[in-house]
Simulated assay, not measured.
Amino acid sequence: MSNGEGGMADGAFVELARVWRGPVVESCHRGVVAVADATGTIRQAWGDPGLVTTPRSSLKPFQAVALVESGAADAFALGEAHIAMACASHHAQPFQVAIVQEWLARLGLEESNLVCGPDLPRGREDLLAAARAGGPRRVFHNCSGKHCGFLTVARHLRADLGYADPAHPAQRLYLDILSDLIGRDAASLLRGTDGCGLPALALSVGEMAVAAARFGAVAVAGGARQAAMRRVLQAMRDHPDHLSGRDEPTARLVRGTGGRVLLKTGAEGFLLAMVPDQGLGVAVKLADGAGRAKFGVLARALALAGALPAAEAEALLPQLEPAILDSNGGAVGAIEILLGG
C-alpha cells in the first residue's frame, strides 16, 4: 500500500538487512526496493514501490542535465569534472573544494552566492584542517557543486541568482526534464525543502526506478536533451570519486562494475542506480533513513535483476558493506543482506 500524502505505512516495508554484533542481531533495516525498465514497467519489487518519499540528492543527476542542455556548461567552458561535481554529494575533500572554488571564480561569484549553508568536511583530517583555517564554509557543503550548477544556468539565462525559488527559470528547466522522465508534470509533485535550502520533491520509489531506467537508456525525445543526458552519464562514469569521495562505496561500485552501473546516493536511506546498457533502474529506500546497508542491498538487487552476475555482486559486498569495527580497528560485527536470501 502506498503512503500517499501521509506518513509511511509499516506494511510498505520488508526486512532488507540485519546488523550482527558477534552472535547477536543488534539492529535491522527495513525498506523498499524497486527495479524498473525504460518502458515504465516495474520488473521486481520488495516492499511497496508506490511508497512516496523524497529522493533528496539522488535527483542531482537529473538537475545536472539542465546545466548541459541549456548551453550553460559550454558557455562557461565546463568540463566533465564540473558536471560530475554538479551531481555530487561530496565530502569536501581538497580536490572537490578546489573545483567548487574555481567554478565560482569562473562565474565571477562568491561563496555568499551559494544558497547552501556553511558546513564542514567529512574526513577527519580535512575537518581538522578546516577547523584550523576558520571553521565551516559554504564551499564545504556537500551540495555546493549542485548549487554551482544552478548558478551557472541562472547566469547563462541572464536570470536573477535566486535559484532556490521553485519558479526560477533554472528550477523550471529541471522540472521539465524530470517531467519527461517520470511521464507526468513534476511541478505538481509534493514538495518540501532540502537540507541545502532547495526544493525537495516527493516521488514514489517505483517512479524513481523508472526515471533512472529512462535516464540510463536516454529514453527521451529531442537531440539536445539526449546529448545532455549522455554527457552527464559519461561524467559520472569517468569521475566516480567526485560523486562522493575517493574510495567511497559509490566510487567502488562504479569502478567495480567497469562503469556498467552508475549510482547516486540520497539522504535518509535513499539510493538510485542506473544500468544504461540494460535500460534498468533500481531505487532503494531504507525506512529508518540509515546510510549503512543500502549499498549492499543495491548490489544484491542488481544481481537478482540480472544486471550483474551473482558472483560479481557478492564479491563487491565486502567492499560496500565492510565489517563493523571497534575503536582499535578489530572486526566485531557484520551487515547481513537479506534481500533474495
Rank of each mutant, 00 (worst) to 15 (best):
1 M>V: 07
1 M>L: 07
11 G>R: 02
13 F>P: 00
15 E>D: 03
18 R>H: 00
19 V>E: 10
20 W>R: 14
28 C>M: 11
31 G>I: 00
38 A>G: 08
40 G>I: 04
48 D>P: 00
51 L>M: 00
53 T>W: 01
53 T>F: 00
54 T>A: 13
55 P>G: 09
56 R>Q: 11
59 L>G: 05
59 L>A: 06
68 V>R: 11
70 S>C: 01
73 A>E: 15
76 F>D: 05
80 E>Q: 12
82 H>D: 15
83 I>N: 13
84 A>K: 03
86 A>N: 04
87 C>M: 10
88 A>L: 09
94 P>G: 07
95 F>D: 15
99 I>L: 14
105 A>K: 02
106 R>T: 08
111 E>W: 00
116 C>D: 09
123 G>R: 10
127 L>N: 12
129 A>N: 15
130 A>G: 13
130 A>S: 14
131 A>K: 13
132 R>E: 13
132 R>V: 07
139 V>Y: 02
140 F>N: 15
143 C>R: 01
143 C>S: 09
149 G>R: 01
153 V>M: 15
154 A>N: 10
156 H>A: 07
160 D>F: 02
161 L>K: 05
163 Y>V: 09
166 P>K: 07
166 P>I: 06
169 P>G: 11
169 P>T: 08
171 Q>T: 12
172 R>W: 10
173 L>E: 11
179 S>Q: 12
182 I>A: 04
182 I>C: 09
183 G>A: 13
184 R>P: 03
187 A>T: 14
188 S>E: 12
190 L>I: 09
190 L>Y: 06
192 G>R: 12
194 D>H: 05
194 D>I: 04
200 A>K: 04
205 V>D: 01
207 E>F: 01
212 A>S: 12
213 A>T: 12
215 F>K: 07
215 F>I: 07
217 A>Y: 08
217 A>G: 05
218 V>R: 06
225 R>C: 06
230 R>T: 03
234 Q>F: 05
238 D>A: 10
239 H>W: 12
242 H>D: 09
248 E>L: 12
249 P>R: 01
249 P>A: 02
249 P>S: 03
252 R>Q: 12
254 V>E: 09
257 T>S: 10
265 T>S: 06
265 T>W: 00
267 A>S: 14
268 E>P: 05
279 G>R: 08
283 A>I: 11
285 K>E: 00
286 L>S: 00
290 A>T: 09
292 R>V: 06
293 A>P: 08
294 K>C: 08
295 F>G: 01
296 G>W: 15
298 L>D: 03
299 A>Y: 11
299 A>W: 14
300 R>V: 14
300 R>W: 10
300 R>Q: 13
301 A>Q: 06
301 A>E: 07
301 A>W: 08
303 A>K: 01
306 G>I: 02
309 P>D: 11
309 P>Q: 03
310 A>K: 02
310 A>Q: 08
311 A>R: 03
321 E>D: 09
321 E>P: 03
322 P>R: 10
323 A>V: 13
324 I>R: 14
325 L>W: 02
326 D>G: 11
340 G>F: 07
